[in-house]
Design a binder for these strands. Structure first.
Length: 427
RNA sequence: GGAGGGGUUCCCGAGUGGCCAAAGGGAUCAGACUGUAAAUCUGACGCGCAAGCUUCGGUGGUUCGAAUCCACCCCCCUCCA
């Protein structure tokens, strides 16, 4: 039905998305000879995935586009344990109900990136709670645990700092995580013929554990591949903004905020990110880079990246909403905005506060909209000339919101610094 | 169970009776410069307009005065059993 599957390793490699591969030559042959089943797990550690999961998520889609069958695994069971891999500290356990709810959300979220109705390589979503829940202790210890050497487990790089670092430790619970994930691979291999697991490079230890276990349990040769964890050239953490984590769920990170995150990508990272986070051809990305280099001034890459990724994650409508706000806020001319535009901005995800404005001081307004964390900070911002109301800089700390100056009778667009906007709506 | 070490403001980390709202670094925020970039420079970074107030795992205590001393409790680590 589908054409000869493409070598997904090759595809990932040319985008810089491969860190480790097991038995590469064999895997090449394995992947080009037939449609294979590939899995990647996502643990419910919050109510939504964030952009840190985007690389593996998109990789599953790449896998499918290459003609293979993707399985997105929601970690309903593993999420209750907590992956210790490269984590400096033991994590708090979340309750059963909470993890259960998160798992459902993550299943839905993951499902948007892969196709469930495309013939033999239609995607599958699974939940490892389905086979882990019923596992009893003795079976676990005798049939699964027996295949693991503690000596080998503590030698894993991923738990090294927890074992060696002074002042830290690892509970048996987290230490066991690797065994659960390994078992997942064996089960998926048995149930769906899954032969390749992909994940972030921090997953290498868990993946190789699964390869070994599958061989012992099922007498099957399976493979693993890891992708880079996204890093930024300046060394700061990827995926955070002044307002916190960039989530995939639009109720946690608006379309607009999501788009803005990508717009603000540093030059040093943007071409790499285009390869990581878009489906643009590598040659096309190189061409964009060439063009930006030869043209003086502002590069185009950030805009392309923001549009591509926002569209991938939030669809054409989400992108349109994000662009509407961006255009309105950063074009510099607010007078063009109609009353309907203002209403739309609020709907599109521009942070908005409705409150009575009679006698409201600018300081209060900044604090109540969250643009400043305290009165003192608000005064400082105003004194620094960092605050802007309806396009006009206000530098008097005693300033009061004047209802007469409202746009369309009730809107005030507050700006703090260059990029933080908030719509204040009179009530 | 025993012995020892430790819990400081977002993070790391100094501070061992007053000069401590607490050194230093990082992160973050703002201003200047710019391209809603990077680098750099400047400033801010518990709350309060201020006087001052509330912080150093928790609770009590000693003291004119405690992050610093004492008691008990909770949590973490290391070694021994």
């Amino acid at each position: 039905m589908s054409k000869q599957p493409a070598n997904i390793v090759q595809i990932l490699r040319e985008r810089g998305l491969v860190v480790q591969v097991s038995a590469e030559a064999e895997l090449d042959e394995h992947l080009t000879s037939a449609c294979r089943t590939v899995y990647c797990g996502f643990d419910p550690t919050a109510q939504s995935l964030h952009i840190g999961s985007l690389v593996p998520l998109l990789a599953l889609r790449r896998v499918q586009l290459a003609g293979h069958r993707p399985i997105a695994l929601a970690g309903g069971a593993t999420g209750m344990i907590g992956d210790p891999s490269f984590k400096a500290k033991e994590r708090k356990l979340n309750s059963l109900e909470v993890v259960g709810e998160w798992t459902e959300r993550i299943k839905a979220q993951v499902s948007r990136f892969i196709d469930f109705d495309c013939g033999e390589n239609s995607a599958i979503v699974a939940n490892n709670l389905d086979w882990t829940q019923s596992l009893d202790v003795l079976t676990f210890l005798r049939d699964i645990g027996k295949h693991f050497s503690v000596n080998a487990m503590i030698a894993k790089e991923s738990v090294k700092q927890r074992i060696e670092r002074e002042g830290e430790g690892i509970s048996f619970t987290e230490f066991t995580y690797m065994i659960l994930q390994s078992y997942d691979f064996a089960v998926l291999n048995r149930q769906y013929g899954c032969t390749l697991q992909i994940g972030g490079s921090d997953q290498w230890g868990n993946i190789t554990g699964g390869i070994d276990l599958t061989r012992r349990l099922n007498q099957q040769q399976v493979y693993g591949l890891t992708m880079p964890l996204v890093t930024k050239a300046d060394g700061t953490k990827f995926g955070k903004t002044e307002t916190g984590t960039v989530w995939l769920d639009p109720s946690l990170t608006s379309h607009y905020a999501f788009y803005q995150f990508w717009i603000n990508t540093a030059d040093a990272d943007v071409y790499k990110f285009l390869r990581y986070f878009t489906f643009l051809d590598v040659a096309e990305i190189d061409a964009i880079e060439e063009r930006d280099k030869s043209a003086a001034g502002k590069p185009q890459a950030q805009g392309i990246l923001a549009r591509e990724v926002t569209k991938l994650v939030h669809g054409a409508e989400g992108l349109a909403a994000a662009e509407r706000i961006t255009e309105a806020l950063f074009s510099g001319d607010l007078s063009k905005l109609t009353e309907a535009d203002f209403a739309q901005l609020a709907l599109d995800g521009l942070p908005t506060t409705k409150k009575p404005i009679a006698g409201l001081s600018l300081v209060d307004a900044l604090v109540s909209t969250g643009l400043a964390s305290s009165n003192r900070a608000a005064r400082e911002f105003i004194g620094n000339g960092a605050v802007n109301v309806n396009g006009e800089k206000v530098s008097d700390p005693a300033a009061v919101i004047d209802p007469v100056q409202a746009m369309h009778g009730r809107y005030f667009l507050l700006r703090r610094g260059k990029k933080q906007f908030h719509l204040l709506q009179a009530e």
